[in-house]
Design a protein around this nucleic acid. Structure first.
Lengths: 159, 159
DNA sequence: ACCCAATAGAGAGGCTACCTCACCATGCGG
DNA sequence: CCGCATGGTGAGGTAGCCTCTCTATTGGGT
């Protein structure tokens, strides 16, 4: 290539990330989830898990409900596309739609027990795979990497 | 969630990488290139740049010639899909197809002068953007990051 | 020298994940 | 009660990828 004097962090980053992502996608397929479906499930689960019954500060947001609009924003897709992802997850029995009692225009997405279970399973598997991937690094190196990535994320993700 | 108990390098990695990639894709659009088109151009240019950039001294063995099959392998797409990408690049006047004189079944892809110029431009712009992205890190940190990514790439990318 | 499986590329057709535009029901300030 | 904004979705389009199939070639075995 051009020069190894300039390691080109961008390329390195890309190459390294690809290894992680490939394993990640292979991880998903046994469960029949596409990356986006997983992300949606995760987004819905993020509201659901642990925050359940949290209540008052989430006005009219009963525990696991994520509006489709919000979901679209999180996945950075058009609202219409969020409808599709939710359709798919609903067809798989992983989530359900429930009307927002406070705003009857809005629909909330809830994880079903199956959805919650699968979310937990995939989370665990993903963590384990991630663990395996980063096993090449010593604990000190991992800490260091986390620090550096944190720096990048802080400046690189304005929002 | 468990996000602060377990730093979860995977997530961190993903988040940080996304910042880089977003900028990268925005970088491409002014030139009317999709990420895949750029990757294909780069793959073709990889054969071309630096090796034979000035001289068509061996028109027989294509200095810039990349078989579509090879291109497909590099982009990790089906051979048929490589045809499409090359079609697009050819329509833009960035590459040309030329038959392999040694194997008349094969077709080689060459960068046109315009393609070579654009490749250089985008490379420079990308490097600059990358530079800006990693500006959050001190030189020492960058070296460190490069080392860590190198470790990951080595083990995480078997091929 | 020939035949036949293997290979390179491309045509046809299909799938999926996105998008935009139009539409309906609802909410809310006048 | 009206008019406009907002949440979700039906309809329809596009881009990128796939597999299946076809043609032209190549090269090894007999």
């Amino acid at each position: 290539m051009t020069s190894d004097a300039t390691p080109d962090l961008g390329n390195l980053f890309h190459a390294a990330f690809r290894g992680l992502r490939r394993g990640w996608m292979e991880q998903l397929s046994p469960w029949g989830l596409t990356p986006h479906q997983w992300r949606a499930l995760q987004a819905a689960g993020h509201h659901d898990t642990g925050l359940h019954d949290a209540g008052p500060h989430d006005a009219g947001n009963p525990g696991g409900g994520l509006r489709l609009k919000e979901l679209a924003e999180r996945l950075r897709i058009a609202p219409r596309s969020a409808t599709e992802v939710v359709d798919q997850l609903e067809a798989k029995g992983l989530v359900v739609r429930r009307p927002d009692p406070a705003d009857r225009r809005a629909t909330h997405v809830f994880l079903t027990p199956a959805g919650r279970r699968l979310h937990a399973e995939v989370s665990a598997a993903r963590r384990e795979q991630s663990e395996r991937y980063f096993a090449a690094l010593s604990p000190a190196d991992r800490t260091e990497l986390a620090r550096l990535l944190g720096l990048l994320q802080a400046t690189g993700t304005p929002e």
